[in-house]
Design a protein around this nucleic acid. Structure first.
Lengths: 343, 343
DNA sequence: GCACTCTTTCAAAGCGCTTTAAAGGGATAC
DNA sequence: GTATCCCTTTAAAGCGCTTTGAAAGAGTGC
C-alpha cells in the first residue's frame, strides 16, 4: 500500500493524505482522523527512501567506528551506542554505523557525507588535534564530538566529562590518605581524555609537592592484561607504588588480579581508584562499591550527544554546544590509608 | 553536481552516464572512460537516496540491539559489529542499528521492514523458540541468525559455533584430569547457546557416570561480578567444585578474582576452562594463554554472517544457509590435575 | 445576492536516479 | 544504392513521496 493507493481508497488527493499524516495544519481535523484511521487499517507506512529523496533529509546520523589502535574495539562502544540508540528511537532517527580501518577514516566520512547518507555525524575518541574535526567542518555537516580536542582552535560542539578535575580529585584523595607513590595506568597516548587525566594527576601531585616518578605513568589501550602486566611489573620495583589510578574498569580488573596474585589486599596494602564508565557488563555498584571510582555514565553521554546533535540539525543553529560533565567521586572499598601512614 | 549536470557537461544523456558509471555493457569503452574521468574531476557522487528509490534496494542491513535482559549490553556486540562492519565496507552496504527495549522488538523489526529501510536483518542472541524468527519469516525479509534456535522447526539461515561440542570437550578435558565436581557458570537461561552448553556438559558428565550437583549449575548474564560472587559462594560449600566451566571471559575474570582472594592457585588448586570469544579488549592470547579455553572469534562470525546474508539477498535464493563452526580447544595455564588425583 | 476572506483540497512539478522502449548511426552484405 | 543488422545513445516514464501554486468551498458582512 502506498500513498497514492491510500489516497484513492479515501477519495482524496495524495497531497491531503500526506499532509494529514505529517501533521500539517491546513487539513481539517475530520479529514485527518479519517486518513489516520485508514492508514492504520491498511497498515500504510510511508516509504522511507521516497520521503528522504523528497525532503532531502536523511533522518540518519553516522557513527564511524575506527579500528585504529591495534584493532582494539573500545568496550565502551556498546554502552555508548545503547544510549545513543535510545535517543534515536525517541527522536525518529536512524543510526548508521560504518567501520573504518586506520587511514580510511577520512574516506569513510567523505563518502558518508557526499552520498548524502546522513544528516550529521558523531565523532568518537578524539585526539588532541584530531584532523577529523577540521574535515567535518570543511564538509559542512553538523557533528558533535564525544570528548574534547584541546588542540583544535576552531569552535565545535562537544560533550565530555571533566577528566582533568576527576583525576585531580582522585589523586588528591589518595594523597590525603597518605599515598606518595601513585601509579597512573592511563589510556593510549594522544587520546585527549588521557592527556587531561595526566594533567589532573600532575597538578594534584605538584600541589602536594610530591615527585612524579616517570616510570609510574603508563599509557596503553585499556585492556585487562594491561592492568595485570603493568601492576605486576610496577609492584616488583623497589619504588613500588602504594596506590593506583586506573583509567577504566577493564584495566582495573587486571590490577585487581595482579594484586591478588601477589597476596596483597586491596584497600589495605594497596589503594586503587578507577574511572568507571558504568558499563553494563562491568558493574561496580552497591552502596559501597567494590572500587573507589570517578564515575560517569557513558550510556547517558551517548544519549545526550545525540540529543545535542539532532537539536543542532533541526534548529539549524551554527552556535556550537558544549557540555562538560563532572564525574562523581564515589568511595568504595579499594582505598585506605597508605601503609605506615598515621592520619 | 548531480547526474543531469554531469551529463550536460559531457554532452551526453543521463542514461548513458548512469550506465557508464554502473558498469553496464551497452556503452562504448571510450565513452565510459570519458564519463568516469569527468565524474572524478567534478567529484560527482550519486545521491544515495535517489539511487535507493529508483532501484528499490536499500543496500542496508538492520541490526536490532535489544536491551532485554536487565539492561545489560552484551560485550560481544562491539566485536561482532566490527567484523560485520568490515564485510559491509567490502560489499558496499550500510549497517543500520536500532535499539529496542524489551517488548518493543517486534515493533522495531516491523517498522524497519515496512518502511523499506533495510534489505535484510541480522538477528542476535536467539532464545530456543525465538519468536522473532517467525516474525521475520512472515515479514518476508532475508535474515541470518547469529546463533541457532533449536525450538524453531521452520528452516532459516544461521551461523553458530558448536556450543554443545565445545562444552562437551571442555568437560571431558576436566574429567580426564580427574575432576569430578565441576561447576558450570552458564549464560542466561533461555539463551540457546546456554542450553547447548549445558547439554554438552551434561552429556560428558553422564558418559563419565559422574553425578551432576544441581547447585553447581548457574545461569546469569555474563558479568564480572557474576563470576566473582558465584565462585565465592560455590567455594564456601562443603562440596565445593574443583573445576569451573565459564561461559565468557568476562565472567572468567570474576572467577579468577574470587579464587585469588581465597588464596587458591588456578591450574593447581582449582581448574578453569572458559569460552573465549576473542574480544579485543579481553585478550587471552600467547603461545600458552592464561586461560584454557574453547575459542572462536565473534568478530569473524560477524563478518561471515554478513557475507551470508548479502549473498542471500543478491542471489535471491530461498534455500537457507547454515554454518556450524567448531570452537578450538586451547590449552592454557588454568587447568591441571584435580587435587589428590593421580593420573 | 454579491464581494470578500479563510479554510480546505487538489493538480502538477520535482527530488535524482534507473530502466524500458525506441531511435540513430555505422558497418556489412547484397 | 538500398536493406539488414548490430552497436551505441537517447527520450521519457517511473520510484513514492513532498510541496508549490491554484482552485474550490465555506463563512461572513453588507
Amino acid at each position: 500500500m502506498n500513498l497514492k493507493e491510500l489516497a484513492r481508497t479515501l477519495g482524496l488527493s495524495p497531497t491531503t493524505v500526506s499532509r494529514a499524516l505529517n501533521g500539517y495544519p491546513e487539513v481539517s481535523s475530520r479529514t485527518r482522523e479519517k486518513v489516520q484511521a485508514a492508514a492504520a487499517l491498511h497498515g500504510y507506512v510511508p516509504n522511507h527512501q521516497a520521503q528522504r529523496l523528497a525532503t532531502g533529509q536523511t533522518k540518519a546520523i553516522g557513527h564511524v567506528l575506527s579500528l585504529a589502535q591495534n584493532d582494539m574495539i573500545n568496550p565502551i562502544f556498546g554502552d555508548f551506542i545503547a544510549g545513543a540508540g535510545e535517543a534515536y528511537a525517541e527522536l525518529g532517527y536512524d543510526m548508521v554505523v560504518s567501520v573504518a580501518r586506520e587511514g580510511n577514516e577520512e574516506e569513510a566520512y567523505r563518502t558518508l557525507v557526499a552520498r548524502n547518507r546522513v544528516d550529521g555525524v558523531v565523532l568518537h575518541s578524539p585526539t588532541a588535534t584530531d584532523a577529523r574535526i577540521a574535515l567535518l567542518a570543511e564538509l559542512d555537516i553538523p557533528f558533535v564530538v564525544h570528548g574534547v580536542a584541546p588542540g583544535v582552535s576552531s569552535p565545535y560542539s562537544w560533550l565530555d566529562i571533566n577528566n582533568f578535575g576527576a583525576f585531580e580529585r582522585a589523586t588528591k584523595l589518595l594523597i590525603d590518605l597518605g599515598h606518595e607513590r601513585i601509579a597512573l595506568l592511563n589510556g593510549p597516548k594522544g587520546m585527549s581524555f588521557a592527556t587531561d587525566r595526566l594533567a589532573g594527576f600532575t597538578q594534584a601531585m605538584n600541589k602536594a609537592e610530591l615527585p612524579i616518578e616517570p616510570g609510574h605513568i603508563l599509557h596503553a589501550s585499556m585492556t585487562e592484561p594491561y592492568g595485570f602486566d603493568s601492576t605486576t611489573e610496577l609492584m616488583a620495583r623497589p619504588d613500588a607504588p602504594t596506590a593506583f589510578l586506573s583509567s577504566s574498569m577493564m584495566t582495573t580488573i587486571g590490577v585487581y588480579r595482579a594484586l591478588g596474585q601477589l597476596g596483597l589486599e586491596i584497600g589495605r596494602d594497596v589503594s586503587l581508584v578507577t574511572h568507571d564508565d558504568m558499563l553494563s557488563f562491568l558493574p561496580n555498584s552497591g552502596d559501597v562499591p567494590q572500587f573507589t571510582c570517578t564515575r560517569s555514565s557513558v550510556r547517558r553521554a551517548g544519549h545526550r550527544v545525540v540529543e545535542m546533535l539532532i537539536s543542532q540539525i533541526t534548529e539549524k543553529t551554527e552556535i556550537p554546544m558544549t557540555e562538560l560533565w563532572e564525574a562523581d567521586l564515589v568511595l568504595g572499598r579499594s582505598t585506605g590509608p597508605a601503609p605506615g601512614h598515621r592520619p
